[in-house]
């Protein structure tokens, strides 16, 4: 059962939740082979859950850890929050970032834009979400190599004399 996980983090991104839970979107997701949609909606309005033999829509506001949902997802759709972007990519999950146009000057966009340039994720706005879902090819994304904190440790050792 292929599933999509949508997360807005600690913010509130009602426009995204509204677009992604619209019948039109669910239809497209079904045509792409997904049968489960999980929404983490934060503080915004929460759509009614749905359970039919062909499709499940689950909704929750916040959870201590989203690790399990990331793990189960075949596609993650998220706000541009840096934490969420990094967590998704580290878990090796395909990511479609939806930019909140109301927060265009937010510095968080810098990272999402760079990761898009480096072909680690896809990038769209609420108004282009449907088009993106139809056109993107998840297999073209490049894997995201893990960060190297050991280089930082070696650097600190060298400046403090622990070498």
């Amino acid at each position: 059962m292929k599933s999509v996980f949508v997360t807005v983090g600690t913010t509130c991104f009602e426009e995204l939740i509204a677009v992604v839970s619209a019948p039109e979107t669910i239809q497209i997701l079904q045509s792409l082979g997904y049968s489960r949609l999980v929404l983490q909606v934060g503080g915004g309005a929460a759509p009614t859950p749905l359970r039919t033999p062909a499709f499940t829509l689950e909704v929750f506001r916040f959870r201590e850890s989203l690790a399990e949902e990331f793990q189960r997802a075949d596609l993650v759709i998220s706000h541009a929050g840096a934490g969420t972007c990094l967590e998704t990519l580290e878990k090796g999950k395909p990511l479609l970032v939806v930019i909140n146009e109301k927060l265009m000057n937010n510095h968080q966009l810098e990272l999402a834009r760079q990761l898009y340039k480096d072909e680690h994720l896809f990038y769209c706005t609420c108004s282009t979400l449907l088009e993106s879902l139809k056109s993107i090819d998840l297999s073209t994304l490049k894997p995201f190599p893990p960060g190297q904190p050991e280089k930082f440790a070696a650097f600190l050792d060298s400046i403090t004399g622990f070498e």
């Binding site: 840096a82 510095h107 968080q108 990272l111 930082f152 600190l156 400046i159």
Partner: peptide, 14 residues
């Protein structure tokens, strides 16, 4: 006192 500042991964250009 050695001060080490690490800029966040979020900061790509500014």
């Amino acid at each position: 006192v050695i001060i080490v500042y690490v800029e966040s991964i979020c900061r790509v250009e500014t």
